[in-house]
Design a protein around this nucleic acid. Structure first.
Lengths: 257, 257
DNA sequence: ACTTGAAAGTGACGTTACGTCATTTTGTAT
DNA sequence: ATACAAAATGACGTAACGTCACTTTCAAGT
């Protein structure tokens, strides 16, 4: 016969919990002292360990009581359905994870210190859930859809998407400066590099996308993160400056050779 | 100004919940009629949608209240830690999934209709958690450890492990019959086929494993599903019969050729 | 036998985010 | 004015205990 504290120590279940299990009739101590102290047997201990295990895999105490009290319980069925439940829960958490990453990436771009950004992002996230795929599928052909998959999505967690997001965030933070500054030009060069790496053969696609980006309403329908017009304008200016630099330097090179 | 029922319809949040949010001060209707009916503004609606979103990604109402009432809340930090929490939860569920698959596969082998099997499996599962890897690593060398990874584990969900488990279960169900019967022999043949497919070059390893299997205590330490001695004996008999058939037929073939 | 401090007992309230009555008031259409 | 829908309030219930307060029992030392 084992005292309640010893049971608690062995199973790491609190004394309070043991008394609670007694109270709800899940595990009654098999005997008591004259004074009313609970005394547990080895069998009680075993049963408790089973309870502990079943609780660990997500069953409620009520379920566990039903299981253990019914000698012809169909374990196969209930465990299969429990597995299904666990799998569903995992999917739910996975989609929460996506939302969170989307928000965090959004915050990275926006600067992350103002409440307005949050509001915008939450609103965006909310409506994204309702939007369907159809619009996107009407807009592009198959080859383009393939390229589409490479686009940085706000929920992306791959280093590729993350770099796009980081670059965009940096552009935003330098918007008050000069588009010809070396910082901005370096960012632009990196973006062009990436664009060529990721979408080598999709020039037409890129142009179409760029046009779309300029229309906020279209962008939203596509589930793209909306880039403000000022940012796009700033990027275009910086882009043109970059191109003109390239031409200048190639002329120089041509002169020398 | 919007009536409570309209808000409920638009957000799919129940009227009761709206009143509750009012009660705890999370979202107070911005005005009321003379009679005390709640009237919500467009801003209230927006705030409610934010609440809904934040609740959806797992925050408690208390947390949400803190967030929304503090204008300089650090969203970045709290969302990162929330992401960490979500990732941990996913791991927890993943390990629950493993336990469940282990149990279900165990039930498949045992026949799944007796409570004793469950008790045994739960006990096994419990002690597996405590057991460490060291014993296994002392027992086999590197090449063998590679093969080890191919062994059917009870928590396996790949078709390969599942077939092993299924075959074992079938053997168990035919144990009262004749080891020379065609059913049993077909199962044995399939097992030998699989054994050759999976462990082509590991004869010594297979033998060592087979010996281990005969020692229940060693098996348990390795985290292998313990196969009862009677089952192993039955399998050995069937195996010998199978071998002798093979020899007979090869003699016949030899005679003809 | 008596004392005493630790351990055990019981009972009650708190927690989360509402659901579900029951009862009373208010709003609105006729 | 009346009738009926919709809203309000209040109270209790849920799951699985934690925490406090107060009382009783156990086991050991004197």
């Amino acid at each position: 016969m084992i005292h309640i504290k010893e049971i608690a120590k062995q199973t790491k279940i609190t004394v309070r919990t043991l008394r609670y299990y007694d109270q709800i009739g899940l595990l009654t101590a098999s005997s008591k002292t004259e004074g009313g102290h609970r005394l547990y047997s080895e069998e009680d201990l075993k049963k408790l360990q089973q309870i502990q295990f079943l609780k660990g895999i997500g069953y409620s105490l009520k379920d566990i009581e039903d299981m253990l009290s019914d000698p012809k319980w169909n374990w196969m069925i209930s465990m299969k359905s429990q597995l299904v439940y666990i799998l569903e829960e995992q999917e739910r958490l996975k989609s929460i994870e996506c939302s969170l990453r989307e928000l965090l990436n959004g915050l990275t771009v926006e600067g992350g210190d103002n409440y307005l950004a949050i509001q915008k992002l939450i609103q965006l996230s909310n409506q994204n859930k309702k939007r369907l795929l159809t619009f996107r599928e009407n807009m592009f052909n198959d080859k383009e859809l393939e390229l589409w998959a490479k686009l940085p999505k706000m929920r992306g967690e791959d280093p590729n998407s993350l770099e796009w997001i980081a670059l965009l965030g940096q552009i935003k933070r330098h918007m008050k400066g000069d588009p010809a500054s070396s910082r901005v030009q370096n960012i632009i060069r990196r973006m062009i590099e990436k664009q060529m790496e990721d979408f080598e053969d999709g020039d037409e696609f890129i142009n179409k996308l760029w046009d779309l980006r300029k229309s906020p309403s279209q962008s939203e329908k596509l589930g793209l993160y909306p880039i403000e017009k000022e940012v796009l304008d700033f990027m275009e200016r910086a882009y043109e400056i970059h191109i003109s630099f390239l031409q200048d330097s190639s002329i120089e090179q041509g002169g020398r050779s």
